[in-house]
Write a protein that binds this DNA or RNA. Structure first.
Lengths: 175, 175
DNA sequence: TCATTATTCAATAATTTGCTTGAATACTTG
DNA sequence: CAAGTATTCAAGCAAATTATTGAATAATGA
């Protein structure tokens, strides 16, 4: 086989896999699945797309071996397939956060624009210990709730930190 | 701004950057540039595409901030823009090597199919020291010459190793 | 078996992407 | 300034990608 043919095959195969990453909806799905397995309908609801469209994207991700599925009754649960899939998503995200002004700016605004659902936390502040540091966790760096929680906790005199990494990040550290 | 709008903006921005990675030709260009800066024509020649097409791809990569350029006389030299660009490419490559059978198989064949240009090395074997270990280096894991060289050196009783990482990998270790 | 529910499939239209060709720009050197 | 060379631009066409719609599968439970 010609050297050029080898190269063409390899780069085409990698690009094929990479294409699965290059759609906003699929990235959001990957980001969701980094938090644990989900059904098609959950994914559709949380990403605000139709079920058929979510299913379609999931097929693309599955063909590229980025996600896997298991059946449980009438439900099919999807999850990320392996740590390297997550590692690649993380590398792309880090890169974009460093180099894409749109991401930097929006993310900052996103985290400042305090919203709502720290409501329960506010109501149950009394149940939290004051002698310990509280770690606020929230899936991925694109979820704002951890930030809101930390701000609320600080305002009320608690020691609190935001956990920057998702659970898959923590696993990555051990490999 | 609506939470959904935030998310749409962020994922779209990341996907925009990711799209720059998802073309075989552009991946090969990135792989080339991981070895150091190159002119448009060098890139076109080494990737076996036309100059206009290479230029076009380079514009895409530049818009996505994955490469940068500098002018020197009539030449414009392109190079990778930052370690994170390289890190992302490496993550994608690792993922594909692990999960894409086509990549695994082809890469293996590629490295076995000994070719030619270790010719000069063969002719100048006498100039090499026999009391030291020789490290064969070759840009990225997708270049075969290092493998051929190691095989030749072993066959002639030298101590030799293949350096798996490119020079950018080595830099990554220090950050 | 039949109705129900979760998921996938299939067809379509709109948009985007990739490569080619030939012309235009930008810098250098005589 | 003129000629030469490296690079980019612009137009055009073929191919791939996306979301939508409505129908088809597949498992569950009565």
């Amino acid at each position: 086989m010609e050297k050029r043919t080898f190269k063409n095959t390899i780069y085409a195969a990698i690009a094929g896999m990479t294409k699965a990453f290059s759609s906003p909806n699929r990235l959001e799905i990957i980001d969701l699945l980094a938090n644990g397995e989900k059904t098609v309908e959950q994914i559709a609801t949380q990403t605000a797309i139709t079920v058929a469209n979510a299913s379609q994207h999931l097929q693309v991700l599955k063909t590229a071996r980025l996600v896997r599925s298991r059946r449980e009754g009438t439900f099919i649960f999807y999850s990320l397939n392996g740590l390297k899939s997550y590692a690649a998503w993380k590398a792309l995200r880090d890169l974009a956060q460093e180099q894409e002004p749109a991401v930097q700016v929006t993310l900052q605004r996103f985290r400042q624009a305090l919203g709502s659902p720290v409501q329960e936390l506010r109501e149950r502040l009394g149940e939290l210990p004051r002698d310990k540091t509280i770690i606020a966790y929230c899936r991925g760096p694109f979820c704002t709730y951890a930030d809101e929680a930390v701000q609320l906790l600080h305002a009320n005199g608690f020691k609190a930190l935001r956990l920057e990494e998702s659970y898959l990040d923590i696993q990555l550290d051990y490999n």
